[in-house]
Simulated scan of single mutants.
Amino acid sequence: MTSARSPKRLLGRRELVNFPTFALGGIEAKVDTGAYTSAIHCANIHIETDAEQRPVLVVYLLDPGRDGTDGHPLTFSEFALRDIRSSNGEVQERYVIRAVVQLYGENFEADFSLSDRSDMKYPVLLGRSLLRQGRFVVDVAKRNLSYKALARAAARRTRS
């Protein structure tokens, strides 16, 4: 019995992604095949307790001054604390959440480690676990392929 596998989709080394659950769109992401877990920039990461005295993770995603963010905190009742190896080889303990990221107009749920990426050029990093899930391959000579494909499709619809 053979299974019909969808073809692999092409991503560039940089992509514009949406996070529909967080109402954030057009966020610049670096596609990093060397990273296993995806990452998203956030600040003021801390634990509080909810009304039932359960721990909740509170974060400010991206920078409050960045377009598309409102500076309000997000809370997560489901999260994990994991050891993540940074790009310099150092192991850091980071909070990890499940988030929905949108590429080619399709939603993918993936783990994102939360860290201060303010010194990095791109606030989001897309790692191998997400790339495998979506059956993506990367062409490092290209950029924003997902966004451009959606823009072309929208232009065709308006001409019809």
Results as ranks from 00 to 15, higher is better:
D119Q: 14
Q102E: 15
R66N: 08
D63E: 15
S115I: 01
L57Y: 06
L125G: 03
L103D: 02
F136A: 05
R117N: 09
V59A: 15
V124K: 02
Y95N: 06
L126H: 03
G134A: 10
V100S: 12
V137I: 15
Y60T: 12
V137N: 02
Y95G: 06
L62W: 10
T69L: 04
V100K: 12
L125V: 05
Q92S: 11
P123C: 01
L74Q: 13
G89S: 11
I97A: 04
S115V: 07
V96W: 10
I97P: 03
N107M: 04
H72Y: 09
Y95I: 02
L57R: 01
L81S: 12
L57C: 12
S118R: 13
R85W: 02
A80V: 05
D139T: 03
D67R: 14
L74V: 12
A99I: 00
G134L: 05
V100Q: 10
Y122E: 14
A141V: 00
K121N: 08
A141C: 07
L62S: 08
P64N: 10
D116E: 08
E90Y: 06
A110W: 00
L114V: 04
L81N: 11
G68P: 10
E109N: 09
G134M: 05
D139A: 13
D63K: 13
F136T: 04
L81Y: 12
L61R: 01
L126I: 15
P73D: 06
L81K: 13
P64M: 03
V91D: 06
R132V: 01
V91W: 09
D116F: 08
F112R: 07
Q92W: 02
S113C: 11
V91H: 11
Y104I: 06
R117T: 07
F79A: 10
G65D: 12
A99C: 08
D119W: 04
P123G: 07
V59I: 15
E93Y: 02
L130K: 07
G71N: 09
R94F: 06
L74I: 04
Q92R: 13
V56Q: 13
N88M: 07
S113P: 03
L114P: 05
Q133E: 15
F108Y: 15
F112V: 07
L61G: 02
V58R: 15
